[in-house]
Design a protein around this nucleic acid. Structure first.
Lengths: 122, 122
DNA sequence: TTGACATATGAACAATTATGCATATATAAT
DNA sequence: ATTATATATGCATAATTGTTCATATGTCAA
């Protein structure tokens, strides 16, 4: 930030509010974890994968077929979801079946959908 | 997808499961709206801005001060949040005060935080 | 052990985007 | 009107990331 940047010299910043705001801010690590998690939801392909996994355990080629995606693309994205423990998987012979780790994911997406739908009404 | 890409020729895809999965998938527009919304949460700076706005209405320079960010950076990010109706604002003289549009945002973030915290325990 | 299949992974490229600088706009005070 | 302040915005740059191709790994069957 430039030193001579003149920002709110008189009334502002409203120190009490600023101090309160600072307290509410999550820790650095929480922010990182949160943004990393949201990054995973922030891509169409991954979001579609997550959404179809909400109700069904599916193997990689099921996902390719259901979403009409390249196998390599699907595997790459599944790796990211795996690394962040959003999905779990089990091998059955040559196939590997993926499913969601827990139901927070579903709740987050339905909250977001509610927001979208309310926006749509306006 | 390459034509000769051999993917699950025998048992797979499990057509009934794939069909069910397809049904659960949100529409193209819903996916776009959802991923756009999550993109906004997927950046450290924006996430910090959102988090401090959860409890406090703040003006731009308050945000700069609370988060130690460049004024230009803050304004750019606020523009994105504004365009997606995640925040609202009101002018009071020379200052412009920002706050969250509704409380879905807060709920989404707390759900995500719950997930993070549970992960932390393992 | 050889071949076929299911999935994973490395590398390269294209596309998106966050940031900071410079500057523009908007408001208030003198 | 002019000046100072508060915020917004266009542009350029650097960094991140999604996709694809090529290939590697792992599993099963013959």
């Amino acid at each position: 930030m430039k030193e001579n940047q003149y920002v709110c010299l008189e009334n502002c910043p409203h120190y009490n509010k600023v101090e309160e705001a600072k307290v509410k801010e999550p820790t650095r690590n929480q922010i990182l974890s949160l943004s990393n998690m949201f990054k995973l939801f922030a891509d169409d392909t991954r979001l579609r994968i997550i959404c179809v996994l909400i109700k069904e355990e599916l193997c990689v080629c099921d996902l390719c077929e259901a979403l009409k995606l390249n196998q390599s693309t699907v595997s790459h994205q599944l790796q990211l979801l795996r690394n962040s423990n959003l999905v779990k998987y089990r091998r059955e012979g040559k196939q590997i079946f993926y499913s969601l780790q827990d139901d927070h994911v579903e709740r987050i997406i339905s909250q977001a959908l509610e927001h979208i739908l309310e926006e749509g009404k306006k």
